[in-house]
Simulated scan of single mutants.
Amino acid sequence: MPILLGLIGLAASAYFVIVRVKRGAEMASGLMDAAQDVRGAARRFGFRRQGNQHPVEAVEDPNLAVAALATAFMQLDDLPTADARRALDVALRCHLNLDGDTAQEIEVLGHWLVEQCGGAAPAFSRLSKRLHKLDEGASFPTLIEILSEVTSAGSKGGPSTRQSEALTDLAHVFSPR
């Protein structure tokens, strides 16, 4: 009888390990797909990361910086809604003159840049400075229009506290010196 119980325990342990390994393989596959999406988007926009600098510093396309800033701004809302995500997609297509596929790719790359900065708040600060360096404020009106549309579609219909603080910081970065 103890041998039979031992075999049942061994079989249960083997089943548990097999299920965990299978789930791990599925998760790794999902991560690889996400990485492929980011790499494809980066290639399309000519983004080249260099080993000795932060990824935001490698951004050379103002449209990419605007999209990443808008993504960070949306994530500053407490809980970005599906409406806010749709508004971001529509605003990027409209104001940056992008087609659907390009808008989705630029959003993926923008989200990746936000994650590389360690969150929405540090990303917003770093990206706003980068955008100002890239075009010295030429994209500012377009950025404000996009952020306005994202804000109006947000969870409160207006900017959250963190978004208001980010807008103040943005005005400071783009103010004439």
Score class of each variant (00 low, 15 high):
Val21Trp: 14
Lys22Met: 00
Arg23Trp: 11
Met27Phe: 12
Ser29Cys: 12
Ser29Phe: 06
Met32Ser: 15
Val38Trp: 07
Val38Met: 07
Arg39Ile: 09
Gly40His: 08
Arg43Asn: 14
Arg43Ala: 15
Arg43Lys: 14
Arg43Thr: 11
Phe45Asn: 05
Gly46Ile: 06
Phe47Asp: 11
Phe47Ala: 06
Arg49Lys: 14
Gly51Glu: 11
Asn52Pro: 02
His54Gln: 11
His54Cys: 08
Asp61Asn: 04
Asp61His: 10
Pro62Leu: 09
Pro62His: 12
Pro62Trp: 05
Asn63Pro: 12
Ala68Asn: 03
Leu69Ser: 02
Phe73Glu: 13
Met74Tyr: 09
Leu76Cys: 04
Asp77Cys: 09
Leu79Tyr: 11
Asp89Leu: 02
Asp89Tyr: 00
Leu96Cys: 13
Leu98Ile: 06
Asp99Glu: 12
Gly100Lys: 14
Asp101Trp: 02
Asp101Met: 10
Thr102Lys: 03
Thr102Phe: 02
Ala103Ile: 02
Leu109Phe: 05
Leu109Cys: 13
His111Thr: 06
Trp112Phe: 10
Trp112Met: 10
Trp112His: 09
Cys117Leu: 06
Ala120Asp: 02
Phe124His: 01
Leu127Cys: 05
Ser128Lys: 06
Lys129Asp: 10
Lys129Cys: 09
His132Ser: 00
Lys133Ile: 04
Leu134Pro: 00
Asp135Leu: 09
Asp135Thr: 01
Glu136Pro: 02
Gly137Asp: 01
Ala138Gly: 07
Phe140Gln: 04
Leu143Asn: 03
Ile144Ser: 00
Val150Pro: 09
Thr151Ile: 01
Ser152Asp: 09
Gly154Asn: 03
Ser155Tyr: 09
Ser155Pro: 00
Ser160Lys: 11
Arg162Ala: 15
Arg162Phe: 08
Arg162Leu: 13
Glu165Asp: 12
Glu165Pro: 00
